[in-house]
Design a protein around this nucleic acid. Structure first.
Lengths: 203, 203
DNA sequence: ACATGAAACGGACCACGGTCCAGTTAGCCC
DNA sequence: GGGCTAACTGGACCGTGGTCCGTTTCATGT
């Protein structure tokens, strides 16, 4: 019995398991990509390069990851998940237990530091991206921020405010400030805390 | 007498005049590009297409405009200049004469409406861009916002605050909210005014 | 074991952005 | 006008992201 499809919703409840060879290739490709990135930098990663380093056809890379951004996000995924764990379930102040505004401040600082460690990877993933605003990572972050804002009793259009805060942590924006403007990480951390306070401050 | 070059600064004070044939080709190319964009949308503009529509070699397009983003910015330039005129020299509240916070609010609203009219062009120009943070248009806007914040007596890191405000007006971010999130232009205008108030509100 | 069909594979192929350089031309000085 | 040089030109060329489709491989039912 198939599930009933009510309308044109982008349903995908099937969640087919990946065939063994496919899973093997996914792992080989992720390994190859990580190595290449470590050795030559994400900005020099090419799809053909990954394919041949993994002894696999180019088409396979695209079939597995969709496009270059997809591959890069997959490479990022592991460490991104760790960050998510820390702010969803980890110890305060970034995890649950601290007051919402404090958590918000801590979240941004953690995100900035995390970003700093993987800067070129994040920048590269964001570059070719319509995904920039729809990546699962971003969605999770946005939900988190929105929740904290609500808990902090902030009134107003929380979706827009969340987006504004998230944009402060945007990889390319951050890189621009650090590289082209000579700002430092502590500058940005202070800037984040200040912004959070301004946004959450009651009228 | 040449100007003295102190060190490795990226000096470019020469400002050579463009040769007559070069100027003619620039005009032909801009015309061709505008037509193609009007007829088929900026997202389908190709450099080769522009070249052949203007009866000119592909190399010439790149020589004149550097890259695709450069060409798109050049096409945008005229209307962007009009916007600049309005907030630098036009009538209040967007131009000089109104109190700074009011001008800031009016500026964002004007920028959003302007953006809305040329959405795909701005999005396309921003897409392939490291220029996103260094385009002359952005620099002018940032100076303007910084100035208004200073005049409004806002304390804090004005560079970061300006960037935050500017990012709210980012073409891709705006498009995402309008298209993927179903927000409306008035939503965004309200969001901008609210953000300005939060940012400029004294501690 | 074997048949069968869906999923995965690989690499030829295409489009487009960007580079290069040998040949041409505009402007300037005599 | 004639010669000189820097600027301009065009299009062949390259690298890379992404598609396509004939072939191969896996999983499952019998």
């Amino acid at each position: 019995m198939l599930p009933v499809l009510l309308d044109g919703e982008p349903v995908e409840p099937v969640e087919r398991v990946e065939r063994a060879d496919a899973a093997r290739n996914r792992a080989k490709l992720l390994d190859a990509a990580s190595s290449l990135i470590r050795d030559h930098g994400a900005e020099h990663l090419t799809m053909e390069g990954v394919a041949s380093a993994a002894n696999v056809g180019k088409g396979t890379v695209f079939r597995r990851f969709g496009d270059r951004a997809g591959l890069l996000f997959a490479v990022i995924d592991k460490s991104e998940k760790e960050l998510q764990q820390s702010f969803l379930f980890g110890p305060p102040p970034v995890g649950p237990g601290a007051p919402p505004v404090e958590r918000l401040e801590a979240f941004g600082v953690a995100a900035l530091r995390h970003l700093r460690c993987n800067m070129n990877l994040y920048v590269e993933a964001d570059r070719s991206a319509d995904r920039r605003y729809t990546s699962p990572a971003r969605v999770v972050r946005e939900r988190h921020i929105t929740l904290l804002l609500r808990r902090a009793g902030v009134a107003g259009d929380l979706e827009l405010l969340s987006n504004t805060l998230l944009n402060f942590l945007d990889p390319m924006a951050t890189e621009h400030l650090l590289v082209n403007r000579g700002r430092t990480l502590p500058d940005l951390e202070d800037g984040w805390r200040d912004l959070v306070r301004r946004v959450t401050r009651p009228a």
